[in-house]
Amino acid sequence: MPASLLGPYSRTILAAAVLLITLGFALSGARGEVHNGLLPFFEWLETTWFGVAGKTWGAVFATVQSVHLLGLALLGGAVLAAEGRLLNVILTDTPRELVCSRCNRVFDIAMITLVATGVFMACGVAVKIYYLPVYWYKMLGLAAGALFHYFVRNPVLAQDLENVNPWLLKAMAVASIMVWFTVAATGRWIGFSG
């Protein structure tokens, strides 16, 4: 579908549509069926090379967990520096555009690290997390966060910020901080559940 069909805000509209569809799905009966259908997939994950490695060598799993945490720290740095700048609380003597675009590169590297190590860990404990609601909340939060970051926040920041309502920028900054702290908190909670 050509993006222009939806006007200048095509990506924002698409992101909102995805969120609405997800919400509708979550509240409907289809959710349970899909969940049941996914069990074989999660069982298969444990038989993959990652799954076997993660289950066999505790030290490897623990080291990957540590790298996941390092990715978390880096993500936190990128998010807090950029959003802190948009909120006018840190780096106030540096242009907003500069801070945000440079932090975005750090963010991307952190996200790649988190997804790679996250997938590895998920394979090792696939059936356990399949039955954990908090794991699904984390994935929902992660999907919402990534859609927001790449399809809402970045396109807005790519404009001339002088023309953007300052309250919109502040609201985006607060939303971004909240979503990533929520994803991190649900992530930690996976570990508490058995």
Binding site: L69, A73, L74, G76, A185, R188, W189
Partner: peptide
Amino acid sequence: ESTHVLTLMVSLGMLFL
């Protein structure tokens, strides 16, 4: 414990930058 972990985003986040 969660606060200990989440605060990595602030302490080490800034330090790494």
